[in-house]
Amino acid sequence: MSFSRYYDELLKKGFIREDTDDKGRKFIFISEKGIKYLEKYRLFIEILDEFDL
């Protein structure tokens, strides 16, 4: 999967968001949904490691 398709998917699913300032510069932020996903993913990986799965 190309980066642009992956990026578009993250935007569409609400894991990241874009914002533009007054000078037209684009900024990309991890959304609250994205942060929650990363927390759950980290927990999942810890469980896998703990049980050698």
Rank of each mutant, 00 (worst) to 15 (best):
F44Q: 07
S2D: 15
E18C: 02
I45G: 03
L43P: 00
E39D: 08
G34K: 00
K40H: 07
D52K: 09
K12R: 15
S4F: 07
K40V: 07
I16M: 01
R25T: 12
E32K: 11
R25E: 12
D8K: 13
M1S: 15
D22T: 13
R5E: 15
F3I: 14
I30S: 02
K13M: 09
Y7S: 03
F51V: 13
K12P: 02
D49I: 14
G24S: 00
S31E: 11
K12N: 12
K23M: 11
D22Q: 11
I30V: 15
K12E: 13
D22I: 15
E50D: 09
K26Q: 04
G24V: 00
Y37R: 02
F15H: 10
K40Y: 09
Y7K: 07
Y41H: 11
D19K: 12
E50M: 08
L53H: 08
Y41G: 04
L43H: 07
E9G: 05
K12A: 13
E50I: 05
D22G: 05
D19Y: 08
D21Q: 08
S2M: 14
G14E: 03
I47H: 08
L53C: 09
Y37Q: 01
I35H: 02
G34P: 01
L38S: 08
E18G: 02
G14L: 02
I47D: 11
L11G: 00
I47R: 11
R5T: 10
R42F: 09
Y41L: 15
F51M: 10
F27H: 04
D49A: 15
F27V: 04
M1W: 14
G24M: 04
K13V: 06
E18V: 02
F15D: 01
L48T: 01
I30T: 08
R42Q: 08
S31P: 07
K40M: 06
F15C: 03
Y41V: 12
R25M: 10
Y6V: 08
G34R: 00
K36R: 13
I28N: 01
K36H: 10
D22P: 02
R5S: 14
I30P: 04
K13T: 09
L53W: 14
F29E: 04
R17L: 08
L53N: 06
K12C: 06
F51G: 06
I35R: 12
D21R: 06
T20Q: 12
F29K: 00
E39I: 13
D49L: 15
R42K: 10
E39G: 03
D49K: 15
D21T: 03
K23A: 12
I45W: 10
M1Y: 14
I45T: 04
I28Y: 02
I35W: 06
K36W: 06
L38A: 09
S2P: 14
T20L: 06
D19T: 13
R42L: 07
E46G: 06
F29D: 00
K33Y: 02
D49S: 13
D8P: 01
L10H: 00
D21E: 08
D8H: 07
F3W: 13
F15L: 10
F27A: 00
F3T: 15
E46D: 14
D19P: 04
S4M: 09
S4V: 09
K36S: 13
Y37S: 02
L10F: 09
E46S: 13
F3P: 13
